[in-house]
């Protein structure tokens, strides 16, 4: 079972208390962008096996959106952080690197 600590209320919430919101840190290409850029924003996902940044909502709890870094293969959670973050914070990167030395943020 996947368990995340909600960064807003500190609860150890299992995935059944949360709602998944897909990949995090997507860059939106808005008006004036090319069709290819918008298609990429809307549809194209790397679907990685390994370290993944995701959006989750504490639906059966405080109701807040947060972001999480986890491994899609082992379900290991590297950390959670507030949704008002445009890129993975340094401590999350450090936590991932400590467990996956050959991983890098691409």
């Amino acid at each position: 079972m996947l368990t995340f600590q909600c960064p807003y209320c500190g609860v150890q919430a299992c995935e059944t208390e949360l709602a998944a919101g897909g990949e995090a840190h997507l860059k939106r290409f808005g008006p004036g962008s090319s069709d290819e850029d918008f298609e990429g924003y809307l549809f194209l996902r790397p679907n990685v096996k390994g370290v993944h940044f995701e959006r989750w909502r504490h639906a059966m709890g405080c109701g807040k959106w947060f972001l999480a870094a986890r491994c899609t293969a082992t379900l290991e959670v590297f950390g959670t952080y507030p949704a008002q973050t445009t890129e993975p914070p340094p401590e999350i990167i450090a936590a991932i690197k400590a467990r996956r030395p050959d991983w890098s943020l691409s």
């Binding site: 209320c9 609860v11 150890q12 919430a13 299992c14 059944t16 208390e17 059966m60 709890g61 405080c62």
Partner: peptide, 17 residues
């Protein structure tokens, strides 16, 4: 409920399902 009831002490409210 999936909440951990072992650690829920009086004075704490746990929102869960």
């Amino acid at each position: 409920t999936p909440a951990d009831l072992t650690t829920l002490a009086p004075g704490e409210m746990r929102r869960t399902r």
